[in-house]
Amino acid sequence: MLKFKKKSLIYLAVSIFLLTLLSSLNPALRTTILSTFKYPLSLLTLIRREIGGIIFYHRNLMQNEGLKREVDLLRNKINTLDEIYLENRRLNDILSLKQKTPYKVIAARVIGRSPDNWSSVVIIDKGRYNGIKQEMAAMTYLGFLGRVIETTESTSKIMLINDPNLGVSCIVVGSRQEGLVSGTLGNSLIMKYLPKGADIKISDVIITSGLTDAYPKGLLIGEVIEVGEELSGLTRYAIIKPAVNLSSIEEVLIIIP
């Protein structure tokens, strides 16, 4: 049985005092440490990427050939869509509708991730110096990624969409059913509190709704892979496979509002 001496009580008191002090010093300490470790983290990530390139050479070669074929196909589609876009502009001009300008983005590389398993966070190599601020949305070329939660001068932290603390207002493409998507700290997302008669089914595409100013409308979230009923029987839920592979993100795009 451990004996609790006066020393232990002093230790406890000092601990509580230190916790309070550290909480107040939080921004200064975190900023300094993150700025210090930015370049070692970037170097380690680069080494890991190069080693991965050597180890997975054959897989990358096959993937490259498949992607080249897909690029050619998409190029053809873009040409077709360009024509449709020009026609749309002409028609809008005729109707004198206001043109929406696309948003600007800042590209950044992922240099690290949260060391604990209680959150899904990535660290990127751009910060306030580059114009990034808290609450900005983040995405990749494939779809929506998350939100900036912390910034230092040269690094930022992004909470990913599979973190349970990030809720994103979404709609189902087609039926326009609204819902709130949050994460499970795993490879899937969950859309909860859907009404019993919600018009949602497997393989439906989910996008951001744009109902709040937090995220632009139309960013791809993912695809429904399962629909079920909650234990209470009053509401339904949908499991969503994210469009972005959250375990292998290399680059992110921060949206400038």
């Binding site: 601990s15 230190l18 916790l19 550290l22 909480s23 010093l25 939080n26 300490l29 975190r30 440490i33 993150l34 470790f37 690290g112 949260s114 060391p115 604990d116 209680w118 959150s119 966070v121 660290i123 939660i149 912390e150 932290k157 909470m159």
Partner: peptide, 15 residues
Amino acid sequence: LKDAFSINTFGINTL
């Protein structure tokens, strides 16, 4: 170091 890289309350791991 662990607290600096995480987003939890600063000081949890330090203590």
